[in-house]
């Protein structure tokens, strides 16, 4: 189902903080540099990745960098 974004970005991502192991590969891969590791720990004791909240272009690179099957969901503006 289409979701409406908060800002005029071309995309955004959702990170499942419980699935994330804080490896940081998505932070490294992100072209727009809009990801960081949370200062907080998740249930399993990792610092999960977080989206800065702005600047995503929905390219999907973070999804392929991530080793977990469903930790990252990428949304992109409908052309």
């Amino acid at each position: 189902m289409p979701v409406t974004a908060m800002r005029e970005d071309r995309g955004f991502i959702e990170i499942n903080a419980q699935e994330c192991k804080g490896c940081g590969l998505c932070v490294e891969a992100c072209v727009q540099k809009v990801l960081h590791l949370s200062p907080h720990l998740n249930h399993y004791g990792y610092h999960p990745a977080e989206y800065d909240g702005r600047g995503c272009n929905g390219c999907g690179v973070c999804f392929y960098a991530c080793p977990e099957p469903g930790a990252i969901r990428v949304f992109k503006a409908v052309a």
Binding site: V3, E8, G70
Partner: peptide, 10 residues
């Protein structure tokens, strides 16, 4: 505000 749809997921 552009409409968004999921492109990558599990």
């Amino acid at each position: 505000m552009p409409e968004m749809k999921q492109t990558h997921g599990k």
